[in-house]
Design a protein around this nucleic acid. Structure first.
Lengths: 218, 218
DNA sequence: GTCTATAGATTGATAGAC
DNA sequence: GTCTATCAATCTATAGAC
């Protein structure tokens, strides 16, 4: 039993800071967001960030962990289920099902709450963020999922060399990252607007055939 | 006729600033790089940036234009050549050749000079940079190439709807961006190192079959 | 063209009252 | 836990001597 919530102010403030930081880190970048921006948007005092989290870097870590840990858990469960169910029948895991197990939870999650969409955009860029803090926090959280994906796709496509498989998974992640930006409206500039439907159904129906064909190439 | 170079100091300073900024923007990001970092690395005075370029944003523009304008010209020429040569024979442009015409100049360029590698990493991230300045400068320079690619792939794959083609090109650009990071050593974190060969020959032999299959999917 | 010096604003973080 | 006030460092940009 944790403490009763007769002091809801605390947890509220923490949540409000996390929500504001998530939105701003996604839209303005980690370096491009000041703690004043965060507390201003959250409607809390400037000092609250360092009181509740300790530092800007720790705040980023908290933003990442809050959503990425449960999301990764779902993705790992679904991929494992596809793998086990295939192995039980003495078959290879089907690439198409593995891809679905990877992207569907992300897309469902994206539509589950307004803030989640910001988070998805943030994660999509963390792959290649120039800031070491961002990349390190993200990589540490995503690494077990990466390993599982590599192993399972190796079972699905044993005829591919490790080198080839690694490159193809990189292409997949690159396409996926790009998609996460587009589907969160982060692929525009002042002069150029890209007209793209971005509902989950469309994305799945576009992504899976393209990547499946690429994975089976040659 | 421009002025004679009895005053080489000026052009030297400008080049040194451009080289330093290119490296730092690529490795630390635009927001993560201060003008002090740039002038420190270039070995010139802090005030020189604003004297020669006017502002940090104008410096970014100069860094982008210096290499991206000639690179895009080569890519446009090569894609146009593939397109014209096919149309002359009454055939569709082959997807494989279009992809080669798109990525080969980039990879050759990457190996042409040490600084070019930094530039390629910078461009690979500009797609999704959170900073409006970076995205706007980049998008304005890349837009004519995008349009040509869309038109030419539409001729190559007329059976695809515009919507499907646009999504597939996005997947291609995403995979390409990711590749540009990897091949410039920008896909690591403190704890995690990815062992990937990244010479041009390997990249071409990996990228083209994967994307070609994806483009022709279904 | 290059330099020093500095303006003027913003940053992350903290001390101490309540 | 929340607040005001502020420190110390940093930033872009510029003025003016040489």
């Amino acid at each position: 039993m944790k403490q009763e919530n007769f002091e809801t102010q605390q947890v509220d403030t923490k949540q409000r800071i996390l929500d504001a930081a998530e939105h701003l880190f996604a839209h303005e970048g980690f370096k491009g967001t000041s703690l004043r921006d965060v507390t201003g948007r959250a409607g809390v005092n400037l000092a609250a960030v360092n009181y509740h989290f300790g530092s800007k870097e720790a705040l980023l870590r908290a933003v990442m962990e809050r959503r990425l840990i449960p999301l990764n858990q779902v993705r790992i469960e679904r991929i494992t289920k596809v793998r086990d169910s295939a192995l039980q029948k003495g078959q290879r895991p089907p690439v198409k099902e593995l891809l679905r197990a990877f992207i569907e939870p992300t897309l469902q999650f994206k539509e589950s709450s307004p803030g989640a969409e910001d988070f998805v955009a943030l994660v999509g860029r963390s792959f290649s963020d120039p800031d070491d803090t961002v990349r390190n926090v993200f990589m540490k959280l995503i690494w077990p999922l990466f390993q599982l994906i590599f192993e399972t796709f190796h079972e699905a496509l044993p005829e591919l060399s490790e080198k080839t498989l690694l490159w193809r998974l990189h292409f997949m992640f690159g396409a996926f990252s790009q998609t996460m930006h587009i589907c969160c409206g982060r692929f525009h500039s002042d002069t150029i607007k890209m007209p793209l439907e971005n509902d989950s159904k469309t994305i799945i129906s576009m992504f899976i055939p393209f990547i499946t064909a690429g994975m089976h190439a040659k």
